[in-house]
Simulated scan of single mutants.
Amino acid sequence: MRLQGKVALITGAGSNIGRAMARLFAREGAAVVVGDTDEVGGGETVRLIEAAGGRACSVAGDVSTTQGLRQSIDGAVETYGRLDMFLSNANSGASGTIAQFDRAGAEKLLIVNLMALMEGAHYCLPHMQQAGGGAIVATSSVQALVGVPGHPAYGAAKAGILGAVRSMAVELWPYKVRVNAVCPGGTAGKTWTVIDELGEEYLPEFEARFGRDMRHLPLPVPTDPMAIAQAALFLASDEASYITGQHLSVDAGLGMLRYDVFHGPEPLDTPQAKSQRHSELQAEFEAWLAAKKEER
């Protein structure tokens, strides 16, 4: 196991990307502290980890406040005795467009995404030093790299994460702490559905029958949260011991696309044909899933 004996605090772990990270890190041997203000979602993540034989606990600290951050970090150390990894993944707030700007929403976006990363690192650092080093992985976004209309504060917060990561990486390297980021695109995927409803042993069949075809529809396509979690796992693990100050895009090429050009071979040479094929694959997958569950 790649993270045996390590402790990870993952914020925003009550759903989606954060939950995928928490479950994967636990499968690799880490004790996981699930941070989320959604206590129901956080509790479900803990249940899923424990059902798979992993170790986890939940904390409901609000990372938009110093008190909430300290509660989360102190809870990790009090429960497991150390802290090796901090995954700053929480996101909240919405600014609206420039024409219809919401200052309070924008401030919350910046605080939860950017300030929580920097202040969280500040409070994590002494514990990581005591552990002999550590890794910080922040969740940025493809919107840090390309212009997307209608989300200026979100783009600013996610771009700010990349600037903070580079600065923090230089400062914290002598403390044996590495700092990196992942940049997801849109997310959706069936990997955890297969694991939860059928079992991991069905993943090869799923991949052969549906996974590749779903993934390789003409771009853009959403990214499975498992893939984003795998990228974060790599950056947090000793395999990335010489990697710091970097961002890893896990977006199925979304950041390099021209949105005014559709690239698809026949018979998927139009957006309409792609959409129809996507719907067919979804229906075929649901039928396969139901049949496999019936067999069991």
Rank of each mutant, 00 (worst) to 15 (best):
T191L: 10
E107M: 13
I228S: 03
N180C: 13
L117K: 02
G134V: 04
G199F: 00
G147M: 09
A208K: 14
Q230N: 06
K158F: 11
S140G: 11
S141T: 08
N180I: 07
V170C: 03
G211A: 07
H127R: 11
T139L: 09
M226S: 02
E205D: 15
Y202I: 00
G132K: 05
M128K: 06
G155S: 15
S140I: 08
A131R: 06
L145R: 13
F210W: 05
H216N: 15
V177N: 09
S141C: 08
F234H: 05
V182Q: 04
R209Y: 01
D224C: 10
P126N: 10
P149K: 01
E205T: 13
P204G: 03
G133N: 04
E171Y: 04
A156C: 12
Y123H: 15
P218F: 11
T193Y: 00
P218Q: 10
W192S: 12
A116D: 09
V179H: 00
I136A: 10
A156D: 05
D102P: 08
I228Y: 02
K108I: 06
A231D: 03
G133V: 04
I161H: 11
P184G: 09
A106K: 11
E207P: 00
E119S: 11
V148L: 13
A232H: 03
V142C: 06
F210K: 08
E207G: 01
P225I: 04
R166G: 01
V142W: 05
K176P: 00
A227W: 08
L109Q: 15
Y123P: 09
L217G: 06
V194A: 05
V142R: 10
A135L: 07
E205R: 12
A227Y: 07
L109R: 05
D196R: 08
G199I: 03
I111F: 02
P220S: 13
A159V: 09
S167W: 04
A131V: 06
G189Y: 05
K108T: 14
P152S: 04
T223G: 02
D224T: 04
G120C: 11
Y202K: 09
R209I: 02
P126A: 06
A135T: 04
V177F: 03
I228K: 01
A156E: 09
P218E: 07
F234D: 02
W192H: 10
A159G: 15
D196T: 01
S141E: 08
Q130N: 11
H151M: 15
F234T: 01
A104R: 10
G185K: 05
D196S: 03
D102N: 15
A116K: 07
A164N: 05
W173E: 08
G150W: 07
A153Y: 03
A121D: 00
W173Q: 07
N180M: 06
P126S: 12
T191S: 14
A164L: 14
A121S: 14
